[in-house]
Amino acid sequence: MGLSRRNFLKAAAGSGLLAASQLSPVPVLAREPKTRLPEALGILYDATLCIGCKACMTACKEYNNLPADPSSPEGLWDDPLDLSARTYNIVKLYTSGTGKTKDQEADGYSFIRRFCMHCVDPACTSACPVKALSKDPITGIVKYNKDLCIGCRYCQIACPFNVPKFQWDTPFPEIKKCQLCDHRIKRGSYSACCEFCPNGASLFGEVQALRKEAKRRLSLPPGSQATFPIHRLDTGEYRYASVGHYFPKVYGEVDGGGTQVLLMAGVPFQKLGLPDLPPESTASHSETLMHTLYKGMIGPYVLFAGLFYLVYRNTTKKDLP
């Protein structure tokens, strides 16, 4: 198109600006992954202790005032198939082959509880444009404030566990998800699912202590009898049970930047429907990029100045159109 040398240089300068705005790799601005809060609260779920009674589901509904969520055509039972705006917590079943042996990958079965993981570096709070989802600076509980929420559902796109759910069937919808029974904790109580779990499969406590407890379980010889705390870690209540054949990993230790809900099971976690996540949260990727491009708005200002210079020079030389 017959670019003269002068024009070419100008064009090159302009494109350079555009490219710079995109690529400027300023690593100092990289957003550090968030670390665990010292007094964070959480839940340790141990599938090898879970008997699939779903007492936690009932308790969750009861203490969060959630309606039944029927999936069968008759609509008679509260039998949700997945988390939804009516169900914050669900117990699912994995089976394979003959499905005979509990907590075994081949020819076995396992239960798995799914609810909000209360991530250490939550993607949902990073995504939410208006801070309607926020992480408590002490307990680390990820809470929702409907008075701020605009209903954009970016949190649903962002959450690696597909936890936030939206009320599709009302003109005034809200996002719904487990908030670790924050309303009960405020009254000095604790998560309903843990209070009503008869087996200690769901155990409430400070995350640091729960992590120690999880490590202890992994170190016990499988098949031996051992004590297992029930309901909550700090009361000292316990029961005896035989130690399961654990898959040697505590899910949530590092996955996706770590979570305050920790999971243990006899079957590999991907088989139980948990995502295989890298050790950094996607929130830190996304924010590093945003910070690189927009920190202090320096990039945009520089680009604007460059553009203004070009446009001003080019328009003043001409008759204005």
Partner: peptide, 15 residues
């Protein structure tokens, strides 16, 4: 809320 700077989460790409 998107237009009130003190309500906005500037880490959010959506903002």
């Amino acid at each position: 809320n998107l237009f009130l700077p003190w309500r906005v989460n500037f880490n959010s790409v959506l903002v």
